[in-house]
Design a protein around this nucleic acid. Structure first.
Length: 123
DNA sequence: CGTATGACTTTTA
DNA sequence: GTAAAAGCCATAC
């Protein structure tokens, strides 16, 4: 039945899963923003929850795994073209390192070139 | 159930 | 150009 919460809810059971699949659809050497994934899933307002979903990623041996496939969480960045890990700045460092290893162009300041490496989510 | 927090985004200064 | 505040939505306590 429809409770008042079922109306326009974008983040529902399975949202988390969609985020993982979206991340897995990002080709090597490209990146997307949280807002892009949120919009792709239905609403740009849930950008924060995309990050929340990624933080909830099950940590398997040597990386985050979903559906027996590694989830390239590091290909997801914020709209400023930079990582914003507040308490886990170490993760941001790792993220830049992984992206650089894939061929993503990063500015001297550590900013990611969204103009060139941004991937458009599409089904 | 109310308050606090968050891997965000946009606007304003 | 960077810095701070407000806005949004869901989870955690």
């Amino acid at each position: 039945m429809t409770s008042r919460f079922d109306k326009e809810r974008v983040v529902k059971p399975g949202f988390n899963e969609k985020v993982y699949r979206a991340a897995q659809s990002i080709p090597k050497g490209h990146v997307v923003t949280y807002g892009d994934i949120a919009t792709y899933l239905g609403s740009p307002r849930v950008a924060r929850h995309v990050g929340w979903a990624l933080s909830a990623l099950p940590e398997a041996s040597s990386g985050k795994i979903f559906n027996n496939h590694s989830v390239p969480w590091y290909r997801v960045i914020n709209a400023k073209g930079r990582v914003s890990a507040r308490d886990d700045i170490l993760r941001g460092q790792l993220q830049l390192d992984l992206l650089a290893a894939e061929g993503v162009e990063i500015s001297s300041d550590g900013k990611i070139d969204l103009n060139s490496s941004r991937w458009i989510l599409s089904r």
